[in-house]
Design a protein around this nucleic acid. Structure first.
Lengths: 127, 127, 127, 127
DNA sequence: GTGGTCTAGACCACT
DNA sequence: GTGGTCTAGACCACC
């Protein structure tokens, strides 16, 4: 389910984090679902177990998943994030700004950009 | 004109590259305009000259600026490097996807997201 | 300045985190001070560099220190923690409760406990 | 009477140990009282019997409870294991120090901290 | 020189 | 079996 791109600038563990979040946003993984174990995933992705473990720890820190000692790792119930949201929202806006600037630079039209946005938005959880 | 954030995850030279591009996107810097020298900028930003030089190399690689030996560095004509556009567009779409996924995880509504996009789009030169 | 106890139940990286915080609370390390590098500390403590690095990343996550690429790691300016404080304060109260329960179990008197508290409080930053 | 928190960092068996001690400190369980069996407790807490058994072993090791083969498990007389007290007191002081350091990092005032301590102290049996 | 990432492989605590 | 910790040693980006 997850594709690792060795040539990407993103660290492997970040790729896993992002794609895990995509799977959850898409609904492929739902609240309470069990996630493949560190060892399973590392074998499947041909990546070191430590790297997968790091991803899981980061996802847990973000309140996306929870781990139960000896049992495994599961998709968390929503609304875990307490108060630090504002900070993350600001970061998100900064990233959005960056994307817009890049788009204008590449000569993307407003319409094209909106179409892409709509497509991605539909892709992750309809609405 | 450029703001350096020491605490950002982005490398200093990347911050300079991005903000340079923003300045051009906004029209503050126009085709053919002369850009401050490496020494000037490094003094102004309190950043190592090597770092500024690296930014300029990157901008030149992307076809955003051109340097004329002994004369200085200038904003390039909207030629843009030929074949690598497709690659950069794909990267842009990947970034857009990432931003959308993050937004959904933070519980942002479709309307809110569109509003932000519009705001950013307007911000960089009305079109 | 830091003492590692191999026999402790606490992970090595946690011991480093805690003692670092103690040094800062005591004022031995002050805002803006440079912290020994990962390699220095790991050599000094006879601990793997990765372990020290993990401590630093945890301290940075808590807003206690900041790292500047290629320059080193420094004690952060206060007031970094944004909104997640409430959560941490609740955790602190839980720990305090635990300590009190343990104390009563060991037959410590109220006076003895207060004396210890006062001593520790004086130890870290007077007032 | 005992609340299990699956998401806590503490092992399940440690949570049981601590809360058992709290119940005794509060006087809910008194010297000589019979304690529910491993099976009863495990059914009630929805926890593996092995886990409960481990808690009981730990409590017995600390001299808090005693088991009489075929009769059941009981709250011990306040004998407490002889030599290991010093060790536990030292550990307690280390924990207290840690709590104080955390409090200072969170900007808690001396008065606030004292108030909390008093509250907790009162909470577990007025003395 | 600095910290960040990754691999390989080991041991431990918990279920 | 699960995740968490630690070591050893490598490579990389940044300054």
């Amino acid at each position: 389910m997850i594709q690792i791109n060795e040539r990407s600038l993103l660290p492997l563990y970040e790729q896993i984090v992002q794609q895990m979040k995509e799977l959850i946003a898409k609904g492929v993984l739902q609240e309470g679902d069990k996630i493949p174990s560190v060892r399973e995933l590392s074998a499947q992705l041909l990546v070191n177990p430590n790297t997968v473990a790091k991803s899981f720890q980061e996802l847990e820190r973000q309140g996306i998943i929870v781990t139960h000692r000896g049992k495994g790792t599961f998709v968390a119930k929503r609304a875990a994030a307490p108060g630090m949201e504002r900070e993350r929202i600001e970061q998100l806006q900064a990233e959005l700004r960056h994307v817009v600037v890049e788009a204008r630079h590449l000569g993307i039209s407003r319409e094209q950009f909106s179409a892409w946005t709509e497509e991605e938005w539909r892709r992750f959880g309809g609405e």
